[in-house]
Amino acid sequence: MVNLGGIRKEVSIELVPEAQVGDYVIVHVGHAIGMIDPDEAERTLALFGEMSAATGVSA
């Protein structure tokens, strides 16, 4: 069961077996396909439009 802004919908979490109640997931065609890392989200928000180019993980 996912909750987005007060809307609740049942989705399959078979593809993200590690998901726990309270986690944020990314949903695609009725399936959770990935998880959101809250720390990384904060870091990305902080980097938006910053002067330095020290962004992302260079793979």
């Binding site: 987005l4 802004g5 007060g6 809307i7 919908k9 949903v27």
Partner: peptide, 10 residues
């Protein structure tokens, strides 16, 4: 309404 926005998002 935020809920309408969310449903549309989904």
């Amino acid at each position: 309404k935020p809920e309408v926005d969310a449903a549309c998002e989904l």
